[in-house]
Amino acid sequence: MNSPKLPPNLSSYLRPGDRVLLFDGECNLCHGLVRFLIRADRQTKILLATVQSAEGQAILSWLGLPTDRVDSIVYFEQGCHWLRSAAFFQALRQLGWPFRLLALARFLPQRLADGVYNAVASNRYRLFGRNDGTVLPGADLPGRYLHSGSRRSR
């Protein structure tokens, strides 16, 4: 599958074929998910960006998704994107064993999986708390987060 040509505002930090998980940088539950992902993704297959960051906003805009109210994680790869539970399951598929086994849950009916996801997502701040988004999990690890103007080497 050919990756679509990236617009100039994305090509300074995103390369065709990159896998990116966008998450709510102010959500404590999302921070837990990202900490899990960082531990499980030892080969750094998945890059990270918050939906609040300039990079996240540019990707959301390019994908035609709302930039002002994002209540879902977004997984982007090879010109395709997934939302909610599908994004989580798609990201799990990139991980090594035994974590990859969790991706088998994608065979749950989509309505059920997204229903559970939406119920948790709409109550995530109340249930898990909210932070100011200034300290991100794994931000000290080189090459984990997208950064404008810095072309990553691969």
Rank of each mutant, 00 (worst) to 15 (best):
A113I: 06
G79C: 08
Q110A: 13
H81F: 15
A105K: 00
T67E: 00
A58N: 11
G17F: 06
D41E: 12
G25R: 14
G138R: 13
A40W: 05
R15V: 04
T67C: 03
L60W: 02
N118K: 07
D68K: 11
H31F: 12
S11C: 03
L104D: 03
S61V: 00
D114L: 11
R130F: 13
F128E: 09
I46W: 08
R84N: 04
H147R: 14
R144W: 08
P8V: 01
Q43H: 15
F76P: 00
H31D: 15
S150C: 04
I38S: 12
R69L: 03
Q90L: 01
Q52E: 11
F88N: 01
L21P: 04
F107C: 01
R35Y: 04
R152T: 09
R15C: 10
H81G: 08
L21N: 06
S11P: 03
C30D: 10
L63E: 03
R84K: 15
F99R: 10
P66M: 01
L146A: 07
G149R: 11
L136H: 14
D68F: 06
G96D: 14
A58L: 06
V120T: 01
R93W: 05
L141P: 03
H147V: 12
Q43G: 14
L33I: 14
Y75N: 00
W82N: 09
A105W: 02
P137F: 13
L48G: 09
G64W: 11
F23L: 12
F107Y: 06
E77G: 00
V116E: 00
R106W: 12
A40P: 04
I46T: 08
F128N: 09
I46R: 07
R130L: 15
I46K: 07
L95C: 12
R100L: 09
R42M: 14
S150P: 01
G138A: 12
M1L: 02
F89V: 07
G138E: 10
N2Y: 10
R84E: 12
R124P: 05
E26W: 06
R124G: 02
W62V: 02
L10F: 00
L48C: 09
S85K: 08
S12L: 06
G79W: 08
R100Q: 10
I73A: 05
L146S: 08
D71V: 09
N131A: 14
A139I: 13
D140C: 06
T44W: 15
K5V: 15
Q110M: 05
S150T: 09
R84S: 06
Q43P: 07
